[in-house]
């Protein structure tokens, strides 16, 4: 049986890029919320923001985290997570943004945004996405101390 390339094209969604250099500006998050005003079937948004914490270890304070990623694999994995989340939860939309490069303590490094008709779906999906990102995406955070030494973060 001949396969239809049209059907195949229609079924596969494009792989989105989730990465951008530096911290995620609060204004970007506000704009992202504003853009959903036109989607009037949405009744609930859930947002998770990851912020770089000034951890103190052995008297040294973290001043920033420098993020690197295996971008191709991370995007592929994020695509799989996205597909699984959309088939599990009835979401209107879902957005994920992760920083690369230097993000100072107090700045935002992860932005996950889910929207649905009712709150429960948006909240549960958002939480699951955050957990999956921490577990599955090949991203590394180098914690840089105020004295310019560093150590590699490890997710628990």
């Amino acid at each position: 049986m001949a396969s239809s390339p049209y059907k195949k094209l229609k079924m596969s969604k494009p792989i989105k890029n989730i990465f951008s250099q530096g911290p995620i500006p609060p204004s970007f998050i506000a704009d992202s919320i504003a853009k959903h005003a036109t989607k009037k079937d949405i009744g609930a948004h859930s947002i998770f923001l990851g912020q770089v914490r000034a951890d103190v270890m052995e008297g040294k304070t973290v001043s920033a985290i420098e993020y690197t990623a295996y971008e191709e694999l991370a995007s592929q994995k994020m695509h799989e997570i996205r597909e699984a989340i959309f088939s599990k939860y009835q979401l209107t939309c879902m957005h994920v943004h992760h920083s690369l490069g230097l993000v100072k303590a107090g700045e935002i490094c992860l932005f996950v945004f889910t929207s649905s008709k009712h709150r429960k779906m948006a909240i549960a999906a958002c939480e699951e996405i955050v957990e999956q990102i921490k577990l599955e995406l090949p991203i590394w955070g180098k914690e840089i101390f105020e004295d310019e030494t560093h150590q590699w973060k490890e997710n628990k």
Partner: peptide, 10 residues
């Protein structure tokens, strides 16, 4: 071949 230590994204 990619050598990948434990992840620490987010």
């Amino acid at each position: 071949v990619a050598l990948m230590p434990p992840y620490s994204g987010g």
